[in-house]
Nucleic acid binder design. Structure first.
Length: 524
RNA sequence: GGGGAUGUAGCUCAGGGGUAGAGCAAUUGCCUUUUAAGCAAUGGGUCGGAGGUUCGAUUCCUCCCAUCCUCACCA
């Protein structure tokens, strides 16, 4: 905070001193609230006659909140206070509250937090308000707040004047954003409802909530660069988790049949509209199930979250209508490519696919040109993702895209060994990625539990890492040991919560669904 | 990391080679049912930071910082 005081801050400090000199404690310890703004408004009934009106005056409510507007008119004033539920107007008259209280009222500013006692009435212009009989200063604010004004037009349209709109200030000082911009709070209320709903769905299906380490000595379960930190006493490097997958699988090995965990994952990568270095995922694992079970549960969880948070499965994201109603479309990755490009990639040679991509100016990492599976995956991303607006499970990926997923059930084990020797053959795995609005919303497998194949695939990945392919994770011997002990047939899911919340709240940027998105620190 | 845009009063913005302007907010006065309250007056700015060009820079140039958009990266 800079130490230079603006005239407005100086003035507020003077008012603070004046309040003290009047014997007012500007920071008292407690205030008894009997009603919030919404309760006051919904609980008011217009009196039928004079005597009923008189009776209502005996009914004193007490509310508390932050002053959001003041309209002073000499010896009487109107003001709004804002609490978590909304706004309530109060009317204060010098004759009624007395000289001292009115003087205190005049020392208040927008942003101060006060308690108001009084009876409820309806003003001439029709607004249910508190007729103030007592006023308590609860917190004097010494920094000015942006003043946002609302205008309700004759057609009932709401116009916001001078909104606090600078996104940088909004993210850096989210507390101001929350005070001043009503729709912001709404986004986070919905976020909480979405998470609660998903937990309810998982609980309903007898999943068990667990907690696994954030600090890991070996990171894994995804392809991403980690954040590195140091443990001083142990003298070792630790990594902030990029995924909790390998730990949840250990729990399946340990005999928990259905587990889930909501976690922050940390990935040391670029930041953009759909990526923040720390983000929230829920992962769940279900023993004795396959990826079809996961698809069913995934679409159920999302559909139910939409109903619980919004009351509908029909959403509009930035102008696009999307319906989250079950069942969702299921589309094999190779069929998606065929539909879009007409290519039958399974029967094409690696060189032919690469040639097609070059001819059509589809960029790909030259290091994968010898890997047919990765070529197919790149071709899919470049050509098909843009069409995946309505909820779609893209299923059955090339094995090269992940070492943790089980090959499709139609292959025999000897067939897999045979196919692996031929670089023009692609093994497909039982994987799906749910797409909505072109975004991957998650990832799921029929989990690989064959310890021999698991070790082989992880070793291949480590080797490729040495060859310079982008990101791979180090070998986790303890995880392999767990798989060797034996993991039952299992399916698992990761679901990106932030992107789901973006969709359901029509938020343009991931930063709009994170209370405190990462910002570069400002110098001094 | 590449490209583009932005940064002026507490907030939202306009302006432009001769050290700045509006609305809201603030201060003072009037005002006892207002609601973007009203009327009148007043104060408030190192024009993101550092250099350079110039008699003179907030304006032009370079660099830096921050933010947004976009591409790359991140399956």
């Amino acid at each position: 905070m800079n130490n230079e005081q603006t005239d407005q801050v100086k003035r507020r400090l003077e008012e603070l001193e004046e309040l003290k000199s009047l014997g007012v404690n500007p920071y008292p310890h407690k205030f008894d609230v009997t009603h919030n703004s919404a309760q006051i408004i919904s609980g008011f009934k217009d009196p039928a006659d004079e005597s009923e009106a008189e009776k209502q005056k005996q009914n004193i409510v007490s509310a508390a909140g932050r002053i959001s507007a003041i309209r002073k008119m000499g010896k009487a004033s109107f003001s709004h206070i804002k609490d978590q539920e909304g706004k309530i107007q109060f009317y204060i008259k010098k004759d009624e509250v007395g000289e001292d209280t009115y003087r205190i009222f005049k020392l208040l500013d927008i942003g101060d937090i006060i308690g108001v006692k009084g009876y409820v009435f309806r003003t001439k212009t029709g607004e249910v308000s508190i007729h103030c009989t007592g006023l308590t200063v609860l917190t004097k604010s010494i920094q000015p707040l942006p003043v946002v004004k609302e205008e309700i037009t004759e057609t009932g349209e709401k116009i916001i004047h001078d909104a606090f709109a600078d996104v940088e200030l909004r993210y850096r000082q989210r507390y101001i954003d929350l005070i001043v911009n009503d729709n912001v709070k709404d986004t986070f209320i919905k976020r909480a409802a979405i998470i609660k709903s998903i937990k309810n769905t998982l609980d309903k299906h007898n999943f068990f909530e667990v907690e696994t380490p954030t600090l890991q000595s070996i990171y894994g379960g995804a392809n991403a660069r980690p954040f590195v930190t140091k443990h001083n006493a142990l003298g070792i490097d630790l990594y902030l988790r990029i995924s909790n997958e390998l730990y949840l699988k250990r729990l399946i090995v340990g005999g928990f049949n259905r587990v889930y965990e909501f976690v922050k994952d940390f990935r040391n990568e670029g930041i953009d509209r759909t990526h923040n270095p720390e983000f929230t995922q829920v992962e769940w694992y279900q023993a004795y199930g396959d990826y079809f079970d996961s698809m069913n549960l995934f679409e159920e969880a999302v559909e139910q979250a939409a109903i619980d948070a919004l009351g509908t499965t029909k959403i509009n994201y930035q102008g696009t209508d999307i319906d989250l109603k079950r069942p969702w479309k299921r589309l094999k990755m190779t069929d998606a490519i065929k539909e879009k490009t007409g290519l039958d990639v399974i029967n094409m040679k690696r060189a032919e696919i690469a040639e097609y991509m070059q001819k059509n100016e589809i960029e790909f990492d030259k290091r994968i040109s010898g890997n047919k599976g990765l070529l197919i995956a790149s071709l899919f991303e470049a050509t098909c993702e843009e069409d995946l607006i309505q909820p779609t499970f893209v299923i059955d990926h090339p094995i090269d895209t992940t070492p943790l997923c089980k090959p499709m059930r139609e292959y025999s084990l000897s067939q897999i060994d045979e196919m692996k020797k031929d670089p023009e053959q692609v093994i497909f795995v039982e994987r799906f990625e749910p797409y909505i609005n072109k975004w991957e919303l998650g990832n799921s497998y029929t989990e690989l539990n064959d310890p021999i194949l698991q070790r082989k695939l992880l070793e291949e990945q480590v080797e490729r890492g040495r060859g310079g392919e982008a990101e791979t994770h180090p070998m986790d011997e303890d995880f392999l040991n767990a798989i060797e002990i034996g993991m039952p047939p299992t399916t698992g899911v990761g679901m990106g919560i932030d992107r789901l919340v973006m969709l359901l709240t029509n938020s343009y940027s991931i930063r709009d669904v994170l209370l405190f998105p990462l910002m570069k620190p400002l110098d001094s």
